[in-house]
């Protein structure tokens, strides 16, 4: 519990929270990290294999093969999400499935499926980016800040 949050609580609330915390099962953080490492690593190895297939059999350049590789991983994720398997894998893998492109694809697909009942425009269209929207907003914004920094550093002759 952060100090700031603790300040707002009465002594009775603090005492209870301490009491409750002692009786709660903890998140197995180390074990979760190990699982995330192996599942995430497996997904990336799979991605690497797909990329090599594109280079070897479809005559893509090393760089050009990245796009179809990402597309294949996204399609697999969307299919797993649609068949209701992905959330079970994610409960096991945690960050292992969230960090690669699989996490992003899943947020969009799951939101689209969930809100299908509210129609294609307000339901699917309006909610598809409900979870992935922040990723795009802050991704674009941080890219903007970084590029401003790079331009100013170049203008100053640092880079």
């Amino acid at each position: 519990m952060s100090i700031k949050k603790k300040k707002k609580l009465t002594p009775i609330q603090q005492e209870y929270q301490q009491f409750a915390q002692e009786r709660e099962p903890k998140r197995p953080i180390l074990f979760n990290c190990v699982k995330a490492f192996f599942v995430g690593g497996f997904i990336c190895t799979l991605g690497q294999a797909i990329q090599m297939i594109f280079v070897k059999y479809f005559h893509f350049s090393q760089e050009g093969a990245a796009n179809p590789t990402v597309a294949v991983i996204i399609i697999i994720t969307v299919l797993l999400t649609g068949f209701g398997v992905f959330d079970h894998i994610a409960q096991y893998a945690g960050a292992g499935t969230v960090i690669p492109i699989t996490g992003f694809a899943n947020t969009m697909a799951s939101a689209a499926i969930e809100h299908r009942t509210e129609g294609f425009v307000l339901g699917v269209g309006g909610n598809m980016f409900k979870l992935s929207g922040p990723v795009i907003v802050y991704g674009v914004f941080s890219a903007f800040v970084v590029s401003l920094l790079v331009i100013s550093l170049r203008a100053l002759g640092v880079m």
Partner: peptide, 17 residues
């Protein structure tokens, strides 16, 4: 789940509590 948390098929890891 849809109302209080995330879409049902969204893959997040829930804590043991």
């Amino acid at each position: 789940e849809k109302q209080y948390r995330y879409p049902t098929e969204y893959g997040s890891q829930k804590p043991p509590t």
